[in-house]
Design a protein around this nucleic acid. Sequence first.
DNA 1: TTTCATTAATCATCATACTATTGGCACTGC
DNA 2: GCAGTGCCAATAGTATGATGATTAATGAAA
Lengths: 263, 263
Amino acid sequence: MKNATFEAALSQAAAALAGTGTRKGERLHDRILNKIGQSIVSRELTPGDQLPNAEEWSAAHGVSRTVLREVIKVLAGKGLVEARPRTGTCVRPRSFWNFLDADVLLWRYGPDTTAEDARSLFELRRAIEPAAGALAAQRATPEQIGDMRKALEQMRASGDDGARFAVPDLVFHQTLLRMSGNELIGSLAALTETALLISFRLTDDNPAGQAHSVALHEQVLHNILAADPAATSAALVVLLDLAEEDVRRSLEARLLGQTVLSH
Amino acid sequence: MKNATFEAALSQAAAALAGTGTRKGERLHDRILNKIGQSIVSRELTPGDQLPNAEEWSAAHGVSRTVLREVIKVLAGKGLVEARPRTGTCVRPRSFWNFLDADVLLWRYGPDTTAEDARSLFELRRAIEPAAGALAAQRATPEQIGDMRKALEQMRASGDDGARFAVPDLVFHQTLLRMSGNELIGSLAALTETALLISFRLTDDNPAGQAHSVALHEQVLHNILAADPAATSAALVVLLDLAEEDVRRSLEARLLGQTVLSH
DNA sequence: TTTCATTAATCATCATACTATTGGCACTGC
DNA sequence: GCAGTGCCAATAGTATGATGATTAATGAAA
């Protein structure tokens, strides 16, 4: 039971990385939630205008009002919609949406990703992870260090198999966030997960080789063990630069491929 | 209608700063949501153990099962609980909670705040706001600059009236986040709001004088106008250091006051 | 034109019935 | 004694009809 959190994180990661496929036991509620959530985030439903009234809308989706109401309440909790009597339910302006919510992130960065999207993810990661690393160098617990070590081992063992590499990579970064000892920072795990999900999807058909990446990750742990905040931050900046560059290259390659194909 | 977003932000800010008081038209749903959310976050209900079944529990709160179910679904959407047939509903481990959600933040940092709590808020702000400032120096739109200017004017006009100062202060920082042109960063507005709410509550009975603070804020805008990312970041670091120092001092003073009183 | 009561549309809430899922238990067969 | 199997009951999930509360829009009256 020592590494229960580690195993939980891994299984969670695996499930997330498995893709959008229907998770076992996906309830009706979740199906509709994802459906409507996605249609809002993907701009099918634009902010400002009313949604159909609950009666018709639930019928349109083939579910009861109960289910639809619960979905609307959850969406309201994430800032996407607002329901008022007489006026009906409407989509709120984008600035109210909680993009850091795991579901919203998935809807936003789900199907296909542009270079612009990737940029915004990395801008935030570049602000967070170096700061988290600096705190980690001062606060990491032995258990967390064990978790990170294990993740590194699995990364090494993965060779150039992108699919095997992805999960321990994610665990590494999530462990880093937890090491900061700051729950608020820990809640940004979903962000990292989304970024890695995108990286994984893109580099899947365009493997870049992870040997260099592993060395950089090892450098991070090394600096944490040395309790050197500045060096840990610096190592993470280098790591993120590389990761973003990889994603950028993959996006270009993919775009080029499409252009070639369309000729 | 030019500054619609600005006015919206201000009214929103005012409502938030007005305190926890019953907002007009607070629905039953919200009352129960806050009640249960708070009792989870404040550790009255500890992670792992089951919640009463929906039937009894709704009766205990004097509401129908429908309302309670909607509340549970929303809490599940924020990562606080998980519901499964047969097993019932249970509180999830803290690491799953989305602390960056506006409601969760309010529950977490609501009633009274320790120095530890304030620290975690400022750790994250210190990672985010300088980064946002650097981006703002490259991307701020004329309209956003106008908003920030207006906020500064109101701050100047407030003198040492803490209550009048708070709202434009909040608007200033939220505008800064929006200037980054990154929606993910914009979603951290709730974080800033919570931090300022705490500052406001503490410094209310221990006014520190805001003249110096205004000068620092002006410096930030000056650097944004000069399109100087590094200088903007640096100015924000100074600003945050001062703000955190103020909070720390206020907490100490308050603690000391209590000690004296208890004699 | 302004004011203000009326109205109708919509969400909010409740109560109840039925379905689906699943952990645990008893029973079976070896 | 043990493993496997199938049934049972507790619980959340879903559906539906009725009623209350809120408020934008309407239109009559001042």
